[in-house]
Write a protein that binds this DNA or RNA. Structure first.
Length: 431
DNA sequence: TCTGGGGTCCTAGGACCC
DNA sequence: TCTGGGGTCCTAGGACCC
């Protein structure tokens, strides 16, 4: 087969991260909750076995699971992000072609590798990642990404594989058998809606989808499904891209710790989200052309009046300046604000029309910013970022942003940020 | 009391133009 | 009776992913 693709995926990533520095959690059911301790977003195998499902609201977790030693964790993205970077660094020692896909998954390319020893190479990779980071991973190897996803699931499900599974050629009986066993809804790229429609047409396994006429799939569904079907046949439709493009939009949104109709609180949250989006914008060296502010009530509280509203305002010129972005976001909020008392649950600030900082182009209607202004702004932002990096994220903020306000997230069960904070480093006792 | 956040891509349909 | 047609751009919404 042509140069295969591997998918490396950390097993139960967030739950596994929680265990690395707290060995007593091994063997216990561990659950990681979303922001605001809202719902379940990760589970250890023991928690899965207790029937705790993905997305289950925290207050629906059956109380009897506590008897089994259930450990609840608030999400600790600082820890997960750092652990993810360690895994990535390890992967780079095994192949130059590494394309991060999500916080816990990467695609690996093996151009020029000897395929007869590739599986052994990946077993070595798996052991090394575990030794260097403490995290268990699974590896699926196949001619296309869609097949690598299937191979990875197989590796994870069957301990006999030792955590690494390489799909032989597409026409190999073993591959055909795997496709025949895979429900169509378990294929990467096929969600609930499309799965139901496919099943109604009698296509209920990966094998049936692979055997369907691509042009018919395109006509009945979309080019996306057509590509998926081709990938199942071993035809690569998604090229490797190890230099990921920068983001096309940047969004920061959070639920409030407590629902609120207090305008001052919401203004404060909007300032914080706008500042955070601007920081991420500078990190990827882009400028934004517009700001969108979104405000939403709690859709689960049907007895209260509902409001889901947003507005987009242009920035005076493409900018990464926190002050300009915060000011525009505040103006947007003022325009959105309704005089009736509405209880809001969430707000967000999205930066749009992003352009590369080095290749920016002005719109005919935009006021150019003088070089002088531009330099002053760059200098100010660099100083702001340095202070916040050195002394903590909230050292210098635009307007008031209290860290203990009601709108701030709840996170009652957060573990230490073991690897990124001096005052939270793990300790060892010598006996 | 209590139900996440951040992305991408595709498509349909409206506005507008000639 | 009978009211063009085709291209492009933009936006909103759907679907999916982790």
């Amino acid at each position: 087969m042509r140069a295969p693709i591997a998918l490396v995926d950390c097993n139960n990533f967030y739950a596994s991260c929680e265990r690395v520095f707290r060995p007593r959690l091994h063997g216990l059911p561990v659950v990681v909750l979303s922001n605001n301790d809202g719902c379940v977003i990760a589970r250890s195998q023991e928690a899965i076995d207790l029937g705790i499902t993905m997305g289950m609201p925290a207050h629906h977790i059956p109380p009897e699971t506590r008897r089994h030693g259930l450990e609840l964790c608030s999400s600790n993205y600082e820890l997960y992000g750092d652990m993810s970077a360690r895994v990535l660094a390890t992967l780079h020692t095994f192949t130059p072609l590494v394309e991060p896909y999500s916080i816990d998954e990467s695609w690996l390319g093996f151009e020029g590798f000897d395929t007869s020893t590739l599986a052994a190479h990946c077993h070595d990779l798996r052991h090394t990642v575990h030794r260097w980071t403490g995290l268990p991973v699974s590896v699926g190897i196949a001619p296309t990404r869609t097949l690598a996803k299937l191979a990875n699931r197989h590796a994870k499900k069957h301990p006999g594989t030792g955590g690494v599974f390489m799909l032989e050629g597409v026409h190999h009986p073993e591959t055909q058998a795997l496709l025949a066993r895979t429900p169509v809804g378990d294929i990467w790229g096929i969600g609930g809606r499309v799965a139901v429609r496919l099943q109604a047409l009698g296509i209920d396994t990966a094998l049936a989808l692979a055997q369907a006429q691509p042009s018919w799939l395109r006509q009945q569904f979309s080019v996306v499904l057509e590509r998926t079907a081709r990938e199942l046949c071993g035809i690569n439709c998604i090229e490797m891209n190890d230099a990921p493009d920068s983001r096309k939009m940047i969004m920061t949104s959070r639920s409030f710790g407590k629902v609120t109709s207090n305008r001052r609180d919401i203004e404060e949250a909007v300032r914080a989200h706008a500042s955070n989006s601007a920081l991420r914008l500078r990190a990827q060296r882009s400028l934004a052309g517009a700001v969108m502010v979104m405000l939403r009530t709690n859709p689960h509280m049907r007895h209260l009046s509902q409001d889901h509203t947003r507005i987009t305002l242009p920035l005076p010129w493409p900018t990464d300046n926190t002050f300009d972005i915060v000011r525009t976001a505040q103006n947007a909020l003022a325009r959105l604000w309704k005089p009736q008392r509405i209880v809001y649950q969430k707000c967000g600030v999205q930066l749009m029309d992003l352009v590369d900082i080095d290749g920016q182009q002005l719109d005919v209607f935009q006021t150019p910013q003088s070089n002088d202004e531009r330099q002053r702004s760059d200098h100010l932002m660099a100083t702001l970022d340095q202070l916040n990096a050195r002394f903590g994220r909230h050292t210098v903020t635009v307007g008031m942003q209290r860290s203990d306000a009601d709108w701030q997230l709840r996170c009652a069960y957060r573990s230490n940020r073991w690897t990124t904070r001096w005052d939270e480093l793990p300790g060892a006792r010598l006996t």
